[in-house]
Design a protein around this nucleic acid. Structure first.
Lengths: 114, 114
DNA sequence: CTGACATTTCCAATTTACTCGAAATGAGGA
DNA sequence: TCCTCATTTCGAGTAAATTGGAAATGTCAG
């Protein structure tokens, strides 16, 4: 991942409505949500939401697809994973106590079996 | 993690110098780096660097400690991990094909054994 | 083709972020 | 104590983000 892409992605997430929007899509999964449904869920005017959708889309964090009259948005999971990997890249210069159960261990999400 | 803290942290990372700075500290590990050493490594004037260090510190992403005449900065790994966990929280509403080896799997760092 | 709906573009006002030289603060060493 | 080094604070100038109403665009049903 390029530094510029990472900055763009982080900047896209560093905003109240966009962070809520992205997390909503992350939690929604493959099904995705239409722009109108998102606007209603977040309580944001259409024109503002469209602006924020554009920011997230340009940053590569979300994907869009037309479906009938609506446009469906989904989280771009590989992009999210790349961003996280970039932040943690070469953590602690690969010290032995870094990756495995120590400082750089990602909690990820709680697994059902955990 | 609170939404406001996440926005603050993401905003702190969404800047060329601060992203480079944070990644430098992540890679440096427990040893940490003095402000002067960071300024030299990044090629940023002292006053600018101090501003960026303040932003990252206020966001909770880095920790500082005085050591003799220098101030040593370190990455705050738990804060980084919380932020990542917040982004991925309840990914795909816990669908079976989400966590394990699918979309929400964090690559984390490449392990030495991978 | 016409009407209705979903979404985006345009625009201007307001707010917030970034930069860096110069001066101030703070901690040791002699 | 006095001086020096490391870092931060101050201040003003420049640049960029966010907002939302109104108008434009694009898609489908009848």
């Amino acid at each position: 991942m390029q530094p510029d892409s990472a900055i763009e992605a982080l900047g896209a997430l560093a905003q109240e409505h966009r962070l809520a929007l992205f997390r909503l899509l992350v939690q929604t999964g493959e099904r995705g949500l239409a722009a109108g449904a998102i606007a209603e869920a977040l309580g944001v005017p259409n024109s503002s939401l469209s602006f924020h959708l554009g920011q997230l889309r340009e940053a590569g964090l979300i994907l869009q697809e037309r479906q009938h009259r609506s446009i469906i948005y989904r989280a771009n999971y590989p992009a999210m994973n790349s961003l996280v990997a970039y932040l943690m890249e070469n953590c602690c210069s690969g010290a032995a106590d870094c990756g495995a159960g120590a400082v750089c261990e990602t909690p990820a999400q709680e697994r059902k079996s955990a």
